[in-house]
Deep mutational scan, measured.
Amino acid sequence: GKELVLALYDYQEKSPREVTMKKGDILTLLNSTNKDWWKVEVKATANDKTYERQGFVPAAYVKKL
């Protein structure tokens, strides 16, 4: 199945390749080969529509579930 990670801290994206997350968010882990930056998929809701974004977050800010 898919691997999930838990956001340990809030993170505000600093570039278009990154994604914003809030502490407590559960994210889908896409790639953890880089030890510093993990690629995740974030589900977000805006205007009653759910959309998914993929991007990088600092590996130290998340932990595998």
Results as ranks from 00 to 15, higher is better:
V19E: 02
K43E: 10
Q12A: 11
Y11H: 02
A46Y: 15
S15M: 07
R17I: 12
K63Y: 09
K64E: 07
L30C: 06
L65Y: 08
P16F: 09
R17Y: 13
R53L: 07
M21F: 09
L30G: 02
T28Y: 12
D10L: 02
S32G: 10
N31M: 07
N47F: 11
A60Y: 08
E41Y: 07
D10K: 03
K2I: 14
A46M: 13
V5W: 06
Q12S: 10
M21A: 02
K2S: 09
Y51S: 11
P58A: 02
E52H: 15
L4Q: 11
M21V: 10
Q12C: 11
A60C: 14
A7L: 03
W37F: 06
A46Q: 14
L30Q: 01
K63M: 14
N31H: 06
A60M: 12
N47A: 11
E3I: 14
F56T: 02
N31L: 07
V57K: 00
G24T: 01
T20H: 04
L30K: 05
L27P: 00
E18I: 03
E18K: 04
E18P: 03
K23A: 13
K14G: 07
K64R: 14
K23N: 03
A60R: 14
Q12P: 05
A7T: 03
T28C: 09
K63H: 09
P58R: 03
N31R: 05
V42R: 13
T50I: 14
L27E: 00
K39N: 05
V5E: 00
V57F: 01
A7Q: 00
R17L: 13
Y11G: 00
E13H: 07
S32Y: 09
W37M: 05
N34D: 14
E52G: 14
E3W: 13
P58W: 04
G1E: 13
K23W: 04
K49M: 13
R53W: 06
Y61E: 01
V62C: 14
K35V: 09
P58M: 03
V5D: 00
D36C: 14
L29K: 00
N47E: 10
A59K: 06
F56V: 06
S15F: 05
Q54R: 11
W38V: 06
Y61F: 11
A44N: 12
K64Q: 08
S15I: 04
V62W: 00
Q12I: 14
Y51R: 08
K43A: 12
T50R: 09
K22S: 07
N31A: 09
R17N: 13
V40K: 00
Y51M: 09
G55E: 02
T45L: 12
W37H: 02
E41I: 12
V62H: 01
S32T: 10
T20D: 03
W38A: 03
P16I: 10
K2E: 11
D25P: 00
F56Q: 03
S15P: 03
A60W: 09
D25C: 07
A44I: 15
V62F: 04
V62I: 08
W38Y: 07
E52P: 14
A46E: 14
R53H: 06
G55A: 03
L4P: 04
K23D: 02
G1A: 12
T50Y: 13
Y9P: 00
V19A: 05
K43P: 15
L29F: 02
E13D: 04
K39T: 06
R53P: 03
K49P: 10
T20P: 06
T20W: 05
D48R: 07
V5I: 06
L29I: 04
L8S: 02
P58F: 05
E52M: 15
I26R: 04
M21L: 07
D48K: 09
Y11F: 06
S32C: 13
I26M: 05
R17V: 10
K39Q: 12
T33Q: 11
L6K: 08
G55I: 04
L4A: 06
N34K: 06
T45P: 08
V42F: 08
K14P: 04
K39I: 13
Y51D: 09
N31F: 06
L4I: 06
G1M: 13
G55N: 01
F56H: 04
W38D: 00
S15R: 09
G24I: 01
G24L: 03
K49V: 15
T28M: 11
V19Q: 01
W38C: 05
A44R: 12
Q54W: 08
G55T: 01
A44M: 15
K63A: 13
K22R: 12
K22Y: 10
V5K: 00
K14S: 07
E13M: 13
E13G: 15
K43C: 14
L6M: 14
D10N: 07
V62Q: 02
A59S: 12
F56L: 08
V62T: 03
G55R: 01
M21K: 01
A46W: 14
K2G: 11
K63C: 15
A60S: 13
A59W: 02
N34A: 08
L8R: 05
M21Y: 01
E13C: 11
L29W: 00
V5C: 13
L6C: 10
T33Y: 08
L27R: 00
E3P: 10
Y9R: 15
K39S: 07
E18Q: 11
T50F: 11
L30Y: 04
Y11N: 01
K22E: 05
N47Q: 11
E41T: 10
P58Y: 03
V57C: 05
Q54T: 11
V62E: 03
D10S: 08
K39H: 08
K2R: 13
I26H: 03
L30T: 04
L29A: 00
Y11D: 00
T20E: 02
K35F: 08
V19Y: 03
Y11S: 01
V42A: 13
A7N: 03
D48W: 05
P58V: 02
G1I: 12
A59F: 02
Q54F: 07
A46N: 13
T20C: 05
N34C: 10
W37T: 02
T45N: 12
T20N: 04
Y9V: 10
K2Q: 10
V5G: 10
P58L: 05
T45G: 11
V19H: 01
S15N: 10
L65P: 03
T50G: 10
S15L: 07
I26T: 07
L29V: 06
Y51V: 12
E3A: 08
K35A: 10
A59G: 04
V62K: 01
Y51K: 09
E52F: 15
S32W: 11
K14Q: 13
L30A: 03
K23T: 06
E18M: 04
R17S: 11
L8Y: 03
L4V: 08
R17A: 11
L30R: 02
T33I: 09
K43W: 13
L6V: 15
V19K: 01
N31G: 06
T50K: 09
E3S: 11
N34L: 09
K35Y: 07
V40A: 00
I26S: 02
V62D: 02
L6T: 07
L65W: 09
L29C: 05
K22W: 09
T50P: 12
K22T: 08
K49Q: 12
E3F: 11
G1N: 13
K64W: 07
L29Q: 00
L6D: 00
L27H: 02
Q54P: 04
D48T: 07
E18V: 05
T20I: 03
L4E: 07
D48M: 08
V62R: 00
E18H: 06
Y61V: 05
K35M: 10
L65Q: 05
I26C: 06
A46D: 14
K63N: 06
G1K: 13
T45W: 11
I26Q: 04
K2V: 14
L65T: 05
T50W: 10
I26W: 05
N47Y: 11
V40D: 02
S32H: 06
V40Q: 00
V19D: 01
V42W: 07
K22H: 08
D48Q: 09
K64L: 14
E3M: 11
L6S: 04
L65E: 04
P16Y: 09
V40M: 01
T20V: 02
F56A: 00
D25N: 05
K2L: 11
V40L: 04
A60T: 12
K39M: 15
A7K: 01
T33M: 11
L65V: 12
E18D: 05
T50D: 11
A44K: 12
K23H: 05
K43Y: 13
D36P: 01
L27A: 06
R17G: 15
Y61D: 03
S15G: 13
Y9C: 15
T45C: 13
V42I: 13
E13K: 12
E3N: 10
K43N: 11
Y11E: 03
Y11M: 03
N31T: 07
T50E: 14
D10F: 03
A59P: 04
K14D: 06
T45V: 13
L29N: 01
V19M: 08
V19S: 02
M21G: 00
V40I: 05
D25I: 03
Q12F: 15
V40G: 00
A44V: 15
P16K: 10
N34P: 04
V19W: 04
K23P: 02
T28V: 15
L8W: 03
S15V: 04
G24W: 06
A7S: 05
L27Y: 08
N47I: 09
A44P: 08
E52T: 15
I26F: 05
E13P: 15
D36K: 14
R53F: 06
